[in-house]
């Protein structure tokens, strides 16, 4: 392993250990699973729909993540700054990028783990009917990417402030914006004033629009590039923010 990979790995490992050394991680996972179940079965009416598909499950993800992902990401850098450990971390022989990536990846993997624990859903629909498992897999990939995008936003907002609460709220607001601009009811409203081209331009910056593609079973490079690009942009800006804090 190269030194850079080693450093990212070491930092990610520490971050991950931090999640599981407190009950917060378990509580998070349980809440996530409960909410996912509640929305799928109660609100969407999974059984009533009588359809062998997980779309009643995935359709909630962009809303569920609004609260859950900022809860995971809010402490990433704000905690580091509040405790002063950022001074330890960044005077070690690691680059800012390695530190940002290490911390981000640990949280992303954690979210991936929570998502993976929804596997009983797959088992259930396969038991009850004959779903298109390609579409399900595709939706999982999209959901994971979307979680990463939200997380990158939280990572950025957590670098902006020492306060976890402020970080959470900021991140929620930004993510909400990224959802709403692609929310069909809002787009219909916008189309009263804007030309269809402009409406679709607005909705193309929405995570909802891009996630919808995955839910249809379409893996398009433009959607992947959108999520990865958003992640890169946020992490890049995080680095800029951290640098500017250090410069005083």
């Amino acid at each position: 392993m190269s030194l850079a990979v080693q450093n990212v790995y070491t930092i990610a490992k520490r971050e991950m250990g931090g999640y599981f050394s407190s009950p917060v991680a378990y509580v998070f996972i349980v809440i996530f699973l409960l909410l996912a179940g509640f929305f799928t079965f109660k609100v969407s009416g999974f059984f009533a729909a009588n359809e062998a598909s997980l779309s009643p499950f995935f359709v909630w993800h962009c809303w569920l993540y609004l609260f859950l992902v900022p809860a995971v990401g809010m402490r990433l850098w704000s905690e580091e700054r509040r405790l002063g450990t950022i001074e330890l971390l960044l005077t070690m022989p690691v680059t800012g990028w390695q530190a940002i990536l290490g911390k981000f990846l640990a949280s992303w993997i954690f979210l991936g783990l929570a998502l993976a624990l929804t596997f009983p859903m797959i088992v259930t629909v396969n038991y009850l009917g004959d779903p298109d498992n390609g579409v399900i897999l595709c939706s999982y990939v999209g959901s994971f990417l979307m979680a990463g995008a939200y997380l990158a936003v939280s990572c950025l907002t957590s670098a902006i402030t020492r306060s976890q609460v402020v970080s959470f709220i900021l991140s929620l607001v930004v993510c909400l914006f990224l959802v709403l601009v692609g929310w069909p009811p809002l787009n219909e409203m916008l189309s009263q004033w804007l030309s269809p081209a402009m409406v679709s331009a607005v909705s193309s910056i929405s995570v909802m629009t891009h996630f919808a593609q995955f839910q249809r079973g379409i893996i398009d490079s433009s959607d992947i590039i959108f999520f990865l690009g958003l992640i890169f942009f946020c992490l890049f800006t995080t680095n800029v923010v951290i640098r500017s804090h250090r410069a005083g």
Partner: peptide
């Protein structure tokens, strides 16, 4: 050693030192 000796609150002393040693290669 920074002023006020910052530490990762949720780690054990051993774990923290292992982490530091690992980052030191």
């Amino acid at each position: 050693l920074p002023e006020n000796a910052p530490l990762y609150a949720d780690m054990s002393v051993y774990g923290f030192l292992s982490f530091a040693a690992e980052l030191r290669g």
